[in-house]
Amino acid sequence: MESGEIDCVMGSDQADFENSIATQSKIRFELRLFRREGVDLRSLPVVNVGILANLPRPDVPLSSEIHWHDLRNLDQAVELLVAGRLDAIVGDVTNIRMYGRTEIVQADLPPVIIANLSLICRDTEPLREFVGGFDSSMGVSNLRQSQPDESRYTVMNGW
């Protein structure tokens, strides 16, 4: 953003960007485990989980031993899961649904990675109006008078 080529980014910490403003509303992204239909992850002694290589390894609420497999992209994850080479993959429901694979279902577990992101923009008058309009559309008013703990969250990519 400092170069002026990018106006806004989604991020978790406004302090990472100089001369910026951030929305009070946040978008919550939930990453979950997905498995093949009929596979009971809780009954497996070892669960092979595919995860994008740039993501942190989350705690998974299973008593099984977890073996992590770094993946390049979600296409690779879906391909390996469908082929039975992985027992589960980490992903979000929107991206998994776009593959149209009915044999891939969400595991009956809570989200394993949660990211609450704000829209962070360069501090210019037009972008201040944009940020205010974004917050307004998300149901947050009094942009500069709200306290951070009053932020509204909208869950994206989750059930």
Rank of each mutant, 00 (worst) to 15 (best):
D123M: 04
G100V: 06
L86E: 00
A53T: 15
E129W: 13
N95C: 06
T124E: 09
V131W: 00
I120N: 01
L143M: 07
S146T: 09
E150Q: 10
Y99Q: 00
L71R: 04
L55H: 13
D87C: 04
M156Q: 12
N116S: 06
P126Q: 03
V60I: 10
L143P: 07
S146D: 05
V93K: 07
V90M: 14
L55V: 12
W68E: 07
T154Y: 15
L80R: 13
F134N: 05
F130T: 09
M138F: 01
V155H: 02
R97N: 11
H67V: 15
Y153Q: 10
P61H: 00
V112I: 13
V112L: 08
S118L: 02
S151E: 09
A88P: 00
N142Q: 14
S118E: 02
P58G: 05
P56M: 06
I66L: 05
V112S: 06
M156V: 14
R144V: 05
P110D: 01
S64E: 00
L81W: 05
H67T: 15
V82G: 04
D87H: 04
M156C: 12
V93G: 04
N142R: 15
N116L: 05
V93C: 02
E150D: 08
I120S: 00
N54T: 15
A77T: 11
H69S: 02
L86C: 03
T124N: 03
G100M: 03
S137P: 14
N73Q: 01
N73R: 02
P56T: 11
R122C: 02
D123V: 08
M98Y: 14
L80V: 07
I104T: 08
L62Q: 03
D75R: 13
T154K: 15
D135M: 02
L127W: 01
G133C: 01
G132V: 05
L74E: 13
S136A: 10
L127F: 01
A83R: 10
G91Q: 05
Q106V: 12
M156D: 08
I89Y: 07
L109W: 08
L80I: 13
V131Y: 01
D87L: 04
L55T: 14
C121I: 07
L74Q: 09
P61V: 05
S63A: 11
